[in-house]
Amino acid sequence: MTRPSFEELVRQIQELPALPAVVLELMSSIDQEDTDVYVLGQKIELDQALAAKTLRIANSSFYGMQSRVTSIPHAVSVLGFHSIRTLVTACALTGSFAPVSGGFDFQGFWRHSLATAVAARMLAPHLQVNPETAFTAGLLHDLGTLVLATRFSAEHAQIRGYRQAHDCQMFDAELAILGMDHAQVGSALAAYWKFPVAIQQAVADHHALERLDCGGLPLVVHVANAVAHALDLSGRDDALVPPLSDAGWERFALSDAAWFALFGQIESTFDEMSRIILA
């Protein structure tokens, strides 16, 4: 089997189904402060399934609201634009990729992505990173895997076979079979979709042990990814905790009690959100 070139990969990415317009708009507005929240609310309401899921999460203990949130404009006003963007992005993205046949574990993929998103959101404040951006970056960190599984399903089956035979990390198997890994593929897709540069970088660097010393969003996603695997939230038998950056880990400097509290929060929030988003 000949390896697809990076150019071919990018061409395949361009043939991927377009993301819902509202998600592209939300992602491109991450760095803008002057987004028209009212117009945004109206757009969300046009997609009823999206609006319904958004309201269910707005009313979950994830946000701990005292009173019931009953409409999208209400949700936007009480939760704020940043939170709404996170919710809508999560709901829309998880519904944007139709499962393919051929043995790729879609459910396990999204469970791990959501677990990483929840962990990233909880870890972010400890590194002065915006929690909402961290959630989105966590959700998208393995985007490249989706491209490989849906557009290069034969190669991806080989990658999974290699991974199983060698019991190695996915990126080792990807490099052996394809010569590139899901982080590279994912960052190409994030760039094609014009995601904010910070998110592109987090997708590209979440396994880049040598580039995580500077902290920030890539480090939050890197550690969140390891914690999500360590808490065994993907439900996959062959889950494997990836190598952790020593320098990055030390930047968190949390007490044991603080870690235990975080683990508990991540487990319960993931449990609640997965029932809504991945239902």
């Binding site: 019991d167 889950a239 905790v241 190598p243 952790l244 880990w249």
Partner: peptide
Amino acid sequence: LFRTTPPEGSG
């Protein structure tokens, strides 16, 4: 889950 994690370090 930690079967490939080295015995020393952050992992």
